[in-house]
């Protein structure tokens, strides 16, 4: 089978949820990946949406985080204050899965405004949503976004959500309970924070992609791991499940 760069991204994002019990699912790409994980590598994964659903088991990809399917198939539906206070802030959720507009070398995220240069108004992005507290309080965080110098930048125009702040020890100094971002999955490969420097380092490329392509598509001088790996090609089962999801079809 052949596949697209976006499919490589979503398949690898789903694989990153192996072993997770509970996942707080962001809107968009993370929702596609988390639902694919439930249909492939982690069928028991508990999906939690900020609209207040615990344990959603949608039979098709939700249209938005407020899709009635998420509520109808959930183990429990709670209010929005409750989902953020009792479930997220209390540290009950293993993985937070987020999309992003801009990400920097320490996996900090901007989803608020884009600086368009002198004399031009700031470009508006949707804003924070649940992300600042999801990234603070989940056990760990996964980010998924397309790889480009526009998205992966040397300096954020605005820090909406803290990943690893200004480097090693920043999360502890800020009092952020969770471990923070452990992987950034893109359509070219996977970056992970270096254990010493906390800086995102290219650890994997997808089949058919070179490290040079990923470096060229990154807005800072991207470090490449000495033992750079190539991700496993998507299996037929993964691609079939993903395409059924994308078509809005129920699980086979």
């Amino acid at each position: 089978m052949t596949w697209t760069p976006d499919e490589l991204m979503t398949v690898n994002a789903a694989r990153a949820l192996a072993g997770a019990r509970t996942c707080f699912v962001g809107i968009g790409l993370p929702s596609a990946a988390a639902n694919l994980a439930r249909r492939t590598i982690e069928p028991g994964l508990v999906l939690i949406y900020e609209s207040g659903t615990l344990g959603s088991k949608p039979s098709r990809l939700p249209l938005s985080i407020g899709d009635g399917e998420l509520a109808d198939t959930a183990d429990a539906v709670v209010s929005v204050p409750e989902i953020f206070n009792y479930w997220l802030q209390a540290g009950r959720i293993d993985v937070g899965f987020l999309g992003a507009a801009q990400v920097d070398r320490y996996a900090n995220v901007n989803t608020t405004v884009i600086d368009r240069g002198p004399g031009r108004p700031e470009g508006r992005l949707p804003g924070a949503g649940g992300a600042p507290e999801i990234a603070a309080s989940c056990g760990k965080v996964l980010l998924v976004l397309r790889h480009s110098p526009r998205n992966l930048v040397g300096k954020l125009d605005f820090v909406t959500t803290v990943g690893h702040g200004d480097g090693p020890g920043a999360r502890a100094r800020l009092g952020l309970p969770g471990a923070g971002p452990v992987a950034v999955i893109t359509d070219l490969g996977i970056m992970r924070p270096d254990p010493e420097t906390a800086e995102l380092t290219l650890t994997d490329v997808h089949p058919g992609t070179t490290a040079g392509q990923a470096v060229a598509a990154t807005g800072w001088p991207l470090a490449v791991a000495a033992d750079l790996r190539v991700t496993e090609p998507p299996t037929e089962a993964e691609l079939t499940a993903l395409r059924r999801l994308a078509q809005g079809a129920p699980d086979a």
Binding site: Q89, A128, P132, E133, S137, V159, T161, V162, G165, L176
Partner: peptide, 8 residues
């Protein structure tokens, strides 16, 4: 709440 830590 525990929120906004490190955010702009």
């Amino acid at each position: 709440l525990r929120g906004y830590r490190g955010s702009d």
